[in-house]
């Protein structure tokens, strides 16, 4: 498999091969990212497959995935590089007493004593990689500013060593849950992709891809219920991964239909808050009940 994606159609097909059904804009932006060498900022609600997209791209292009998980208080030492103090100390201790300061200094600030962290690793490898900077909105603005150099010029300045320039261009994806407005400077350097919950048809295709043995009718009903649940005002709406989990669970349980009892027994797979559970049981359960009634009336 080549590492290049030659066209939009090919991008979509290759992503589908590795189990990710991309919509038009996701395929196009991924393709453009490769062609223009620009990072992609992926935004959207939790659980629509932002991180999964990065993983799929790495599989589809047969590149390694380097992941930097962001959190509050993430700093350069954990994202870029760190000096290996211990090794430096050892080096100084083994140094014979008559060695000059200059020699030692040049010696201990060499690449040998550098501990590369994800960002440095990503740009200094020989083989191009996919770099995933996950949940960038969790970090503070200073960190964002630090990223700018990496993202626009693909280089990192280390005061003691000089500039480390990228040997290969990584494909960079940044994800954000939009919990904080990102800076204009960062946005300007990125292509923008908004991922939303898929339509019923697309989600059905996704569920089918991951749980092919599930009966088509149950699958459709499942996806429709998940969409109904998302339309409610919940603390945490179900993600795509959760609908897949649910489909698999129904398969394991050998459910023959998705009715009110099955829903009430298994809905904890898609709904994870106590208060949400009550709401879903009441609203969606009621609807499923009505539907049954309607079907019976039609039959009778």
């Amino acid at each position: 498999m080549s590492a290049e994606l030659a066209s939009i159609e090919e991008t979509r097909d290759r992503l589908a091969e590795v189990g990710y059904l991309a919509d038009e804009s996701a395929a196009l932006v991924t393709y453009l990212a490769g062609r223009l060498g620009k990072p992609v900022l992926v935004e959207g609600p939790a659980g629509v497959g932002k991180t999964e997209l990065a993983k799929a791209v790495s599989r589809a292009t047969a590149r390694d995935l380097i992941r930097l998980q962001c959190y509050e208080g993430l700093d350069e030492a954990k994202a870029l590089y760190e000096w290996n103090y211990r090794k430096q100390l050892l080096r100084i201790q083994t140094e014979s007493a008559d060695a000059g300061w200059q020699e030692v200094k040049e010696d201990i600030f060499g690449e040998e004593f550098l501990l590369p962290r994800p960002l440095l690793t990503a740009i200094s490898t020989d083989r191009p990689v996919v770099l995933l900077i996950d949940e960038i909105d969790k970090t503070d603005q200073e960190f964002e500013a630090m990223l700018l150099e990496v993202l626009s010029d693909f280089q990192i300045s280390i005061p003691e060593l000089g500039r480390v320039e990228a040997r290969t261009r990584p494909l960079v994806l940044l994800t954000s849950n939009n919990s904080r407005e990102l800076t204009e400077a960062l946005k300007r350097r990125c292509l923008y992709l908004w991922l939303d919950y898929p339509s019923v048809e697309r989600e059905l295709a996704i569920v089918h891809l991951h749980a092919p043995q599930l009966d088509a009718q149950i699958a459709r009903k499942l996806v429709e219920v998940v969409h109904m649940v998302r339309a409610l005002d919940l603390k945490k709406p179900p993600s795509i991964a959760e609908s897949i989990d649910w489909a698999r669970a129904l398969l394991l349980l050998g459910a023959e239909d998705l009715d009110r009892t099955v829903l009430e027994r298994t809905m904890s797979i898609v709904v994870k808050h106590r208060t949400d559970l009550d709401l879903v049981a009441e609203r969606v359960g009621l609807k499923l009940g009505d539907e049954l009634l309607g079907q019976r009336r039609q039959a009778g």
Binding site: I8, S25, L28, V29, L32, E43, K187, Y192, W194
Partner: peptide, 17 residues
């Protein structure tokens, strides 16, 4: 494709989009 390409490069938020 034309539309999406413009959107990906020019609009940087859902509202802009």
């Amino acid at each position: 494709d034309f539309h999406e390409a413009l959107a990906a490069t020019l609009a940087k938020s859902q509202e802009d989009r």
